[in-house]
Design a protein around this nucleic acid. Structure first.
Lengths: 257, 257
DNA sequence: TCAAAAGTGTTCATGGTACACCCATGA
DNA sequence: TCATGGGTGTACCATGAACACTTTTGA
């Protein structure tokens, strides 16, 4: 499940080709077995884990860079992305530990200098279908895998704060727009959707009231199918009604749980 | 009302001291005579108007840069600022008109080159007390003044889109957090507060229901005073209850009009 | 005295919340 | 047969929306 990427990926000697002082960090959320998951990478075995990220090419829009970076890590095209905050403190990557990691690395001196510059991070969150993503390493990336949101390891820099802000942004998203299309498989049960809401909001939601509310929103189509191979009454399957979902996504205002 | 600034301001020969490829653009909102106002500047008499903006120093956080830039334009410290979006299209400032403005300007060649680079803009909105702000020009800024939000002139680059997004962010702010402390004078009437909400949401709100709702939120203290010198029944004055206001601001969720 | 806006309460409709029983399935 | 979660409806409460008359003030 962690093949080395055969997509183009940053080459050590080449960091100076990117726009200086800027990076993109992505909080990639997935949903699996009733757990909210986050994709993390590890640059080297001795460094703490970090959010997947990368840099911006001179002739590439910021959104396109974020998309490219995530495509390299997941093999997915068409990722749902939202830019949620800038992390622009002067010394956010300037810890002694980080300097040491960089200086001790195999990178050429020019790339070391480049990485040691003050860096402003553009924070994105991404919502993706866990089952379709292929966590993918690269020459500079030793490991890339999903973590339970409750069990994230030590993270470098200010990545703990970035993740925290992303979770807050995700909550705000949920309260203002529909959510789920990007995180769930095409067909899902009402309970799976509810669990997703519960885990993002970190509170339990009444089963019947949730169903009433979601159905009233009109973004769900009930299928003629049920989920089988469960050791209890076969639950109905739903899918999202694209048109209505999109409409509410753009309206932006006034859901709320 | 438009004194030339005696604060430090960008000097033409010096643009290269800023971080390259990055700018900050601010949508500064004020409220006056029942109108939402926005502060705009004009670099030269022939250029379109633009949002006040500036650049980031190497040893300055992004938020601090935004604060400094706005302090230069308004003489205000302690401005309420929110970063709301990044504008990162490759050619967003690369129009023939803009190239011409830059090349025809009095700037030294090095600064012209610097300005012609591809620039990513970090979008902020600011909420300020109209009556306390002093729109302030500078050597490079020919004019700086308030405009009615309904009558903004032609704007350069993608500033129309930035403004539009800022207004949307402001609406979202209003629906999720208390708003008004930064835009209104210390003492204000319920109607002034309501007009502010109406103009931001672009819809009318029932006078009695609005009052009930605001009072129930608990963020207002009714004063023993009334507003005088009006040719109608003297309205009661209110001020914000700091503690409660701050609490709701941090809670972030669940107002809504 | 007139124009303009202030102050104030009730009714109605809607939406939210709380809650319990029987059913289907695989183990 | 049992454990597990699925499917469903109602009653109550809170909130939001609609709405009108009298009062005060300066012009």
């Amino acid at each position: 499940m962690q093949p080395t990427s055969d997509l183009p990926s940053p080459r050590p000697e080449n960091l100076a080709k990117y726009l200086p002082h800027l990076s993109i960090d992505c909080c990639v959320f997935g949903f699996h077995e009733n757990q909210l998951k986050i994709l993390l990478i590890q640059w080297q075995s001795i460094t703490p884990w970090s959010l997947p990220g990368g840099f911006i090419l001179p002739n590439e829009s910021v959104d396109a860079a974020a998309k490219r970076i995530l495509q390299e890590r997941t093999s997915l095209k068409d990722i749902y992305l939202e830019q949620f905050k800038i992390f622009g403190e002067v010394n956010r990557t300037n810890s002694p530990e980080n300097r040491k990691y960089i200086l001790d690395s195999d990178l050429p001196a020019s790339s070391k200098d480049w990485l040691l510059q003050r860096t402003i991070s553009l924070g994105y969150y991404a919502l993706i279908d866990f089952s379709k993503a292929m966590p993918t390493t690269a020459p500079l990336i030793q490991d890339c895998r999903w973590w339970d949101i409750q069990e994230v390891p030590l993270l470098i820099h200010d990545h703990p704060q970035i993740l925290q802000q992303a979770r807050r942004a995700l909550q705000l998203h949920l309260l203002n727009k529909p959510l789920g299309y990007n995180l769930l498989p095409e067909k899902f049960t009402m309970t799976e959707l509810r669990r997703l809401y519960e885990i993002i909001l970190d509170k339990s939601i009444d089963r019947r009231n949730f169903e009433k509310k979601m159905l009233k929103l009109g973004i769900l189509d009930r299928l003629e199918e049920v989920k089988t191979n469960v050791s209890y009454k076969a639950p109905l399957l739903y899918k999202f009604n694209q048109a209505k979902y999109q409409e509410l996504l753009e309206a932006d205002f006034g859901l709320g749980f």
